[in-house]
């Protein structure tokens, strides 16, 4: 069943005003407006239907704005990616702290027992290890480290500690940033 002439004229005008839209979009909008009009027509006069829809130019302009999308909302995918990166940074930071603790322990041991703690080569097995030598096999061990061991270990312990602190701080800021970005202002 066809629509009233006034409603058909409105659709023709709307179609003309939607010239900038794609053919498929245009056809879809016209069909939906036609469906709306037909259903409203069961209870309303054509003039009231047109009054409620507003001018065809305004409706077409609103569709034009709509097809460009809205102001970006909290982007959940980016938020998840940020939280994942922050989790990795947190784990990296904790790992660096563990390294710092091990190196600091080596420094303390080197200060307490400079004769026993070093980088050793076991001549019998060919193994190289860092730590305290067993006095029973001391004769088989060669000291590979020089006076550089203590300052190097101390430097690396400090570097790992500071880097770990920076990564944990970065992760904490990312978590806080993710939470505030998800809250509409």
């Amino acid at each position: 069943m066809g629509l009233d002439p006034a409603l058909e004229r409105y659709l023709t005008d709307l179609d003309r005003q939607l010239a900038a839209a794609g053919v498929a979009d245009r056809s879809d909008i016209i069909e939906e407006t036609r469906s709306h009009m037909a259903e409203r027509r069961e209870r309303m006069a054509p003039q009231e239907i047109l009054l409620r829809l507003g001018p065809a130019s305004a409706l077409a302009a609103a569709y034009g704005d709509a097809s460009q999308g809205s102001v970006p909302q909290p982007v959940l995918r980016d938020e998840r990616a940020m939280q994942w990166s922050a989790s990795v940074a947190m784990m990296g930071g904790v790992l660096l702290w563990v390294c710092a603790i091990v190196l600091a322990t080596l420094c303390i041991a080197e200060i307490m027992e400079p004769q026993l703690v070093s980088v050793w080569l076991n001549a019998q097995t060919g193994n190289v290890f860092v730590g305290a030598a067993n006095p029973d096999v001391f004769a088989q061990l060669s000291d590979l480290a020089g006076p550089w061991l203590l300052p190097s270990a101390a430097f690396l312990a400090g570097l790992a500690g500071v880097s770990g602190w920076a990564m944990v701080r970065l992760a904490a800021l990312s978590f806080a940033g993710g939470r505030s970005a998800a809250t509409p202002h």
């Binding site: 909008i29 069909e31 939906e32 407006t33 709306h36 409203r40 239907i49 409620r52 829809l53 507003g54 305004a58 409706l59 609103a62 569709y63 704005d65 709509a66 097809s67 460009q68 999308g69 809205s70 909302q73």
Partner: peptide, 22 residues
């Protein structure tokens, strides 16, 4: 209103929040 609901639905569709079928 009648004149704003459809553009709003169109925008939500463009944003990927809703989908439509005839």
């Amino acid at each position: 209103s009648d004149g704003t609901i459809y553009p709003l639905l169109k925008r939500l569709q463009t944003d990927g929040r809703i989908q439509a079928r005839w």
